[in-house]
């Protein structure tokens, strides 16, 4: 089971690579708004969901594809931690 730090690192790398090419890693902090900040749109969010499910072996429900759960790296880590518990 991955630690929170490992999860954040993996998700951050995925987002930087997939949606913010060329952006420095420090531009994406734990509280950077991803959905409400316009980094993730609906398709990008679905791609992120597919990544999370594949990488961490979790299953997300439709209502969890929401700013409440996926808006920041910290939110995502909290969700993943809860799923893996």
């Amino acid at each position: 089971m991955a630690t929170t730090d490992e999860m954040v690192r993996a998700v951050k790398a995925f987002i930087l690579d997939e949606f913010l090419p060329g952006e420095p890693a420090d531009s994406l902090a734990g509280d950077t708004p991803l959905i409400s900040g316009g980094i993730l749109d609906s398709i990008a969010t679905l791609k992120l969901v597919m990544f999370l499910e594949e990488k961490f072996g979790v299953v997300l429900a439709a209502h969890e594809v929401d700013k409440q759960y996926l808006d920041t790296l910290d939110d995502i880590a909290t969700l993943l931690a809860a799923k893996q518990r």
């Binding site: 090419p21 952006e23 980094i39």
Partner: peptide
């Protein structure tokens, strides 16, 4: 448009 975005890495214009 969605299919195109799904298939390729969508490089957002850097801020």
């Amino acid at each position: 448009g969605s299919l195109r975005e799904l298939r390729k890495s969508r490089s957002r214009v850097p801020a």
